[in-house]
């Protein structure tokens, strides 16, 4: 029966860790893909991206 206890702990811990990793990874890759924090200065003029 100790197998079930270990299974219960593992399922919870591994799932939370995997989800955390996924979220943090997505956060970082998004933050990297976007220009560094100038959130208030939205690019309005055309030609900015050429």
């Amino acid at each position: 029966m100790s197998g079930l206890i270990d299974a219960g702990y593992s399922v919870v811990l591994v799932s939370v860790a995997a989800y955390s990793a996924a979220v943090v990874y997505r956060h970082r890759s998004l933050a990297r893909s976007l220009p560094p924090p100038t959130p208030d200065a939205e690019p309005e003029e055309e030609g900015e991206w050429q």
Binding site: V16, S20, V23, R26, H27, L30, A31, S33
Partner: peptide, 16 residues
């Protein structure tokens, strides 16, 4: 902690 990160992802995705 997870919600804070997930929130930031949501905001960044909207910006993107």
């Amino acid at each position: 902690w997870l919600v804070a990160h997930r929130y930031a992802v949501e905001a960044l995705a909207e910006r993107q």
